[in-house]
């Protein structure tokens, strides 16, 4: 069994609002897998279904070989879950929180204490283990959350927006913790994120937008689909320019967020041609290798950050 998570035609509606529609992908064992999408894209719904908290209204999710809908306890004992919102008891210490969590997973006595101590140690929490959680910093709390998710040695660790609310240094620290975990224990990691930079670090990605899967693959594969280079032109009248570029040079140009955008195999050559033909209208021109943002635009036709707004508006019933 090398596919740890198999999602087939998964769909969900809240009343009449479609939150997820025929989403299919696979997470392989040992992978660092990211679910990337703007807010409101369907990530949280998918997270709830995969963590057995929400029954899907269509399709099927199989986790570690068990149907997430029909064999919830079989799935629950094999996955560790780290929520976006805190799930720790603030009136308990880190050690007490872990101890209670361990017992909920059937651990007790010496086994529980040994695991607990080694996790506290490994996550750099040993000195603060007896302080109430409310006295710990955000980064430390997040580490306690992850330690809690790893206590029962799950095959799959699922994290919902783990870096939301963390400052850049705590975010980097979080990533080294996760990467260390994966390398040391072989646990498969599935996380949701709306940070493009973060998604770059994943082995493979599924990109969600408005409840649909728009692309799935490694960051390199996804970028390769866009083509060689991306050129953006900042100009006075982008729509007019797009038409003239299409008609005079015979290449497809789109307008995204007030900028002219062209995908091409040979960027430098095209920059030269654009400048010689339309130099007068260009305010600024940028040439770059495609980023995940370009992938998102390529697949959806709109920008990633703007998608937040679009989805938020679309969400209203």
């Amino acid at each position: 069994m090398s596919d740890l998570v198999v999602v087939e035609g998964l769909g969900h509606r809240y009343g009449s609002r479609v939150a997820l529609e025929s989403v299919s992908f696979v997470v392989r064992a040992g992978e660092f897998f990211g679910l990337l999408g703007p807010n409101g894209g369907g990530k949280t719904t998918l997270f709830r279904i995969l963590t057995t908290l929400l029954p899907s209204s269509a399709g099927k999710a199989t986790i570690c070989g068990h149907d997430a809908l029909r064999y919830r306890d079989e799935v629950r004992r094999r996955i560790g879950v780290v929520f976006q919102s805190p799930s720790l008891d603030l009136y308990l210490s880190a050690r007490e929180n872990l101890r209670h969590a361990g017992r909920l997973y059937g651990l007790s006595g010496r086994t529980l204490e040994t695991r607990l101590e080694s996790l506290l140690d490994r996550f750099g929490l040993a000195d603060r283990a007896d302080d109430l959680v409310r006295a710990l910093s955000g980064g430390m709390r997040r580490r306690v959350e992850i330690a809690k998710g790893m206590l029962h040695e799950p095959s799959l660790l699922i994290l919902d927006e783990p870096s939301t609310g963390l400052d850049p240094s705590a975010r980097r620290e979080l990533w080294s913790v996760l990467e260390g975990l994966r390398d040391r224990t072989g646990v498969t990691i599935l996380l949701t994120t709306h940070f493009l930079e973060e998604a770059e670090h994943c082995d493979r990605l599924a990109i969600l937008d408005r409840g649909r899967l728009v692309a799935c693959g490694s960051p390199a594969e996804l970028k390769a689909r866009v083509g060689g280079d991306c050129i953006r032109v900042d100009c006075e009248r982008p729509d007019e320019l797009a038409r003239s570029v299409s008609s005079r040079l015979g290449i497809e140009a789109t307008v995204v967020d007030g900028q002219l955008r062209v995908e091409t195999r040979d960027g430098p050559a095209l920059v030269g041609r654009l400048m010689s033909e339309f130099g007068g209208e260009v305010r600024a021109i940028t040439l770059g290798k495609p980023t995940l943002e370009d992938v998102f635009i390529h697949e959806t036709g709109h920008r990633f950050e703007l998608a937040d707004v679009v989805n938020a508006v679309g969400e209203k019933p």
Partner: peptide, 21 residues
């Protein structure tokens, strides 16, 4: 943690947590 060397199958065959009763 289960061991010093990561399992080849990514931990898929690792024992699940006991059911707590």
């Amino acid at each position: 943690m289960s061991g010093q060397t990561p399992p080849v199958d990514g931990g898929a065959s690792r024992n699940p947590a006991p059911l707590p009763g």
